[in-house]
Simulated assay, not measured.
Amino acid sequence: MAQRITTLVLLLETLFLVSYVSQIATTAADNDVDVIHVAGKVMCQDCTLNYDKWINGSEPIKGAVVSITCMDERRRVRYYGSDKTDERGQFDLIVNNVLYGGKELKPRLCKVRLVSSPDQSCDIPTNFGDGQTGVDLVRPFMVFQDLVKYVVGPFYYTTPMCEAPKLENNY
């Protein structure tokens, strides 16, 4: 009986600590920094390969464009920015936390999504990692002193051969 109570107390303390740390991270992300960073990766995935190569053989896309769109509470666009990926397929969007007119950016109202791929052999966007529909910035990956960083993705493009056929009248 005493062991169960001790376990229950430890569980409650752990839940409280996780909730407290999450609250601190969210508060820091919303208020204490001048810029936020949003990082991720864009890859090419070829569906014509066998399963193992398809899953593990994706290649980075250099020069792919990824965007961030931030809204306000009334669903009006307050910020739009984009970045190109480097030779490793990585991007790092840097967004000012204070917008025009002194308004603060609310990261939870921002979406990051795929825009374009320069590789004509791999330019069909997929929704793996929500690259097409967009990823909401919910919780930062890292909060340290004056750095708040979100990590999204990886996002994937695929080859034209892998594009799902467009059906007329849903047939």
Rank of each mutant, 00 (worst) to 15 (best):
E168A: 14
Y171A: 07
T6P: 06
V66L: 10
Q132Y: 10
M1S: 12
S67M: 12
M1R: 12
W54G: 06
V138H: 08
D86Q: 06
L114M: 07
V138S: 03
R113D: 12
K111L: 10
N56W: 11
L167A: 05
P165R: 14
E73G: 14
A164N: 12
Y157I: 07
G101C: 09
G40A: 10
L10S: 15
A2W: 02
S117C: 04
L114N: 00
E168W: 08
G153D: 02
R75P: 07
G102V: 02
G40W: 01
M142H: 07
G131T: 03
S121K: 15
V42Y: 10
Q45I: 01
D32V: 04
C44E: 05
Y171E: 13
Q45N: 03
L8N: 06
Y20M: 12
L10H: 13
Y51W: 00
G101E: 07
E104Q: 09
A28R: 10
P60D: 03
R74I: 15
R74E: 15
G63A: 09
V9S: 14
S67R: 10
K84P: 02
H37V: 04
A29E: 00
D34A: 14
V33I: 02
I5L: 14
V33P: 03
D123V: 08
M43V: 01
E163Y: 04
R75W: 15
D92G: 04
D146G: 01
L137Q: 00
